[in-house]
């Protein structure tokens, strides 16, 4: 790998690092795992970079690699707090002090999203990133119809978590 390619890659990643950070925020629960996953995604991106032909935007290409790494390639470290326990504690406290403010509502929503499974999280993530169903379907390898169906199910699931 030559220096020029290296420089180009690091610069592009530096400019687009938000995407990776957002994936890490969604799939990990503490700072160490966040850093861990960020590093693994960076390695996977770098390894795949020679195959990046530039016929799509660098950021578009990143979504796929980052999500694939988070869902499939990444092995969570043992130190990691089990999602269920961690979230339900926070969830309980916020639910008790529930008030109608927008901020509270958002907090509850974020907690609910974090309780979803890996695949559901990926769908929500792409949705929040304003991707259309065609892109969502292509990234996950499902049909567009199935992506819509799945998204509706997730909305129902979120509703049950928020309003048991």
């Amino acid at each position: 790998m030559n220096k020029e390619l290296e420089h180009k890659f690091v610069t592009e990643l530096e400019n687009n690092q938000n995407i990776v950070h957002k994936v890490c925020t969604l799939y990990t629960n503490d700072r160490d795992s966040h850093k861990d996953l960020f590093q693994e995604i960076t390695i996977q991106l770098w390894k795949a970079y020679p195959k990046f032909r530039g016929d799509s935007k660098f950021s578009t290409w990143m979504y796929r690699v980052a999500l694939n790494t988070a869902i499939t390639m990444y092995r969570k470290s043992k130190k990691r707090i089990r999602t269920q326990d961690y979230e339900s504690v926070i969830f309980k406290i916020t639910a008790d002090e529930y008030d109608e403010t927008e901020e509270q509502q958002l907090k509850l929503m974020y907690n609910a999203v974090k309780q979803l499974g890996d695949i559901d999280k990926a769908l929500v993530f792409l949705y929040l990133e304003d991707k259309n169903y065609t892109e969502i379907a292509e990234t996950l390898g499902i049909t567009e119809v199935n992506a819509r169906v799945k998204m509706n199910r997730i909305k129902n699931k979120l509703r049950t978590i928020l309003d048991p």
């Binding site: 290296e6 890659f9 690091v10 990643l13 530096e14 690092q17 960020f38 590093q39 693994e40 960076t42 390695i43 996977q44 770098w46 390894k47 790494t69 499939t72 390639m73 990444y74 092995r75």
Partner: peptide, 14 residues
């Protein structure tokens, strides 16, 4: 920081 990361060893499941 990013530059340092690209030479780290992967610990992917693959």
């Amino acid at each position: 920081e990013i530059h340092k990361m690209i030479w780290k060893k992967s610990s992917s499941i693959v």
